[in-house]
Amino acid sequence: MPASGTFGYGEEFEPFLPPGTFSAIVPKSISVEMRTGNPPPRAIETPSGLLNSIGLQNPGLDQFVESYLPRLQRYGVPILVNVVGRTVEDYCKVVETLEGLPLVAGFELNVSCPNVKEGLLFGLDPLATSQLIRAVRPLTRGVLMAKLTPNVTDIAEQAVAAEEAGADSISLINTIRAMAVDWRSGKSRIGTETGGLSGPAIRPIALRMTMEASRAVQIPVCAIGGICSAEHVLEFISVGASLVQVGTHLYREPTCLPQLLQDLRCLLAAGDFASLDDVRGNFHPDQDRLPDRERQVP
C-alpha cells in the first residue's frame, strides 16, 4: 500500500494507473480543520533522501467527506484513513465521523509528524500515545494502526504502548527530523528550520527500528522507510514486518507497485520460499557475530 502523505488523495495517480491496483489506499493526513500547510520551499533533495516540510496541508474533515472520500470510494479498495490532530478530541472526531462509511477499513493515527508544532506531542510520549489509542479504540471496529515516529530513543517502548492500548497494528517509521542549511545565507534550505527526511537514506534506520518493534510486540508491524524494490520489502519482512508501505519511491515511479509485487513472487520462488510467511522473522542473531556487550559467556 502507499504510505500516507505520498499518495495525495488518490486522484493524482489516476493518469498513471487504476488506483484499484493497490491493496489499500492511505490518503494524506486528515485533520478536523483545514490546514494550509507550511511556507515554501517545502522540499529539497539530500543525498539519497528527500527532506520535506509540507506541514500536513489538507482540506479538513468536512471537505474530505464531501469531495475526496466519494472519489476514493470509487476505486473499490479498502481505505486506511490517516488521521492527525491537535488534541485527543480531534482524533476522535475524525474517527467517529468516518467510522462505518463504505470502504473505510480503518484508521492510521499519525502521532509522528515532525513538521508541525503539535505533530510529535503524542508520538514522543508513550503515555500520551497510549491515552490517544485508548480514546479512539472504542470508536471503531475497523483496523486501528498507530504510525510511530523514529525520533525517539526507544521505538520498542512506543510500540508496546500502542499494543497495550489496543492498537491492531503499528506502522513505522515516519520521517526523521533533519535539516539542510545554506551556510552563506545562514538560512534553512526549506521553509521551516527543520523538516522530515525520507527515502533510501533512512532505510537502514527503518530496518533496525522495524526489527526492534517487531521483537517487542505481537501485533503486525507495517514497515515504512525507503522501500523501493522487492528486495527491500523482503529485508523488512525478514526482520519481522507483516506489511509494507511505499512512500518517496512513488514520486519517481508512481507505477512501481504492480512490478514490485511481481518481483516479490519471483524472488520468493527463486529462493525456494513458499510464501512471505517463510521469510517473515527469519532474521536471527548470530551468537558469534554479536558485539561483545551482548555475547553470552558460557
Binding site: 495525495g8 495517480f13 508512481p254
Partner: peptide
Amino acid sequence: ENYMPCGFGACFGCVIE
C-alpha cells in the same frame, strides 16, 4: 520552474503562495 518532488500533485512540495 519550482523544485518538484513528484510533478503530478501528490506531494504538495512545489507550492507557491
